[in-house]
């Protein structure tokens, strides 16, 4: 009994320490970024209402596409149903490049490339969600663990001939002519978005089980090959 208590204490200490010690980012800088880049479409905090974009209060731990009365794009609703939850990690990926995480999202925002700026913005957004000190079991605020995509991976020149063969596995479900009906279109994507999206499935950041399985066995070269092929498909 005594031993178990001791273990529990050690466990807590190990996990609690980084939470206290390490903040996500600078919420004050984040507030400025929010005013400049988000406020035109989103409201947050007391009295916030849906505008062009949905209310961003209580965002953390929320299923994507779940704010009542907000009309989301079909792809965002679909991803929410598939299991996309807004966490530090998924929000970071979304703000970095919305259309690479949720292809076809209506959020008309080019993305925020600077990782520090994103961390600051997310720290600001985090202040408007339930805090760990309020609800111990709520989403932890630990820094994201998945490394960002290595620029070397993005720089791989894909072999379109190999991509053509590999693509035959995609076209069982995805229409080559770009028809989007129950299954998203993947033709004529910018290669970089394609590569980021496939790696997001591989890292299980994107939620869909079929796509996670398909992506999991594709090498970096194979993903680049597919991106090269689909980018040019008529």
């Amino acid at each position: 009994m005594a031993r178990r208590q001791l273990l529990a204490l050690v466990f807590c200490a190990v996990h609690a320490a980084p939470l206290a010690a390490e903040s996500i980012g600078d919420p004050t800088r984040g507030a400025t970024l929010f005013d400049r880049q988000c406020k035109a479409c989103h409201q947050i905090g007391a009295g916030a209402t849906n505008r062009v974009g949905p209310v961003l209060s209580n965002l953390f731990g929320r299923k994507a596409g779940a704010v009542p009365d907000f009309k989301y794009s079909k792809p965002l609703t679909r991803m929410g149903a598939d299991g996309l939850i807004w966490t530090l990690q998924t929000l970071d990926a979304y703000i970095e490049n919305p259309k690479a995480l949720v292809s076809g999202t209506r959020m008309n925002y080019r993305g925020m490339a600077d990782a520090t700026a994103r961390a600051d913005l997310i720290a600001f957004l985090r202040d408007y969600s339930d805090q760990p000190q309020n609800i111990p079991e709520s989403e932890p605020t630990a820094r994201k663990t998945a490394p960002a995509l290595d620029p070397a991976i993005l720089a791989i020149e894909g072999d379109p001939e190999y991509g053509a063969y590999l693509s035959s596995e995609c076209s069982t479900c995805h229409r080559r002519d770009g028809t989007d009906d129950g299954i998203p279109s993947i033709t004529q994507w910018p290669p970089e978005d394609f590569v980021v999206a496939m790696h997001a499935y591989k890292a299980k950041l994107r939620p869909h089980p079929v796509m996670q399985m398909m992506a999991s066995r594709l090498s970096n070269d194979e993903i680049a090959a597919l991106a090269a092929y689909f980018a040019t498909l008529e």
């Binding site: 679909r78 149903a81 598939d82 076209s171 069982t172 229409r175 002519d177 028809t179 009906d181 299954i183």
Partner: peptide, 15 residues
């Protein structure tokens, strides 16, 4: 969503 996806698959595989 899974059902809608199956409809998409049908049109995909038959194409």
């Amino acid at each position: 969503v899974t059902y809608e996806e199956s409809l998409g698959w049908y049109s995909g595989i038959t194409a």
